[in-house]
């Protein structure tokens, strides 16, 4: 699963930055179209929910989502894994 911030809802309060135990959310610096600095995600695949939500069949940690006052954080299904041809360069 993939962690996403809904840019149409986020107001850039950085509460998620404050609570994520993995430090995945980083204060944003660039303003989006709505004039909001949405946090950046630093290696979100480290999030327990991204990795283990399906395995456990329930939401795990979820601190960022619960505290996000703007209902902007969610996990979405990723595209099914597609094999790419790997070009090996010597």
């Amino acid at each position: 699963m993939k962690l996403v911030i809904d840019e149409s809802r986020c107001k850039g309060c950085n509460l998620c930055v404050l609570v994520c135990p993995y430090g995945i959310f980083q204060e944003g610096s660039e303003l989006n179209q709505r004039g909001i600095a949405v946090p950046r995600l630093d290696r979100p695949e480290r999030c327990t929910n991204c990795r283990l939500q399906h395995l456990y069949g329930r939401l795990l940690c979820g601190m960022c989502q619960m505290i996000c006052p703007d209902q902007a954080i969610r996990w979405v299904e990723e595209e099914p894994f597609e094999p790419h041809s790997v070009v090996v360069e010597f």
């Binding site: 149409s8 107001k11 309060c13 509460l15 619960m66 006052p69």
Partner: peptide, 12 residues
Amino acid sequence: PHIYCAGCGNGT
């Protein structure tokens, strides 16, 4: 999005 200010605790 709702009318609350950025960082307002009400949404939480």
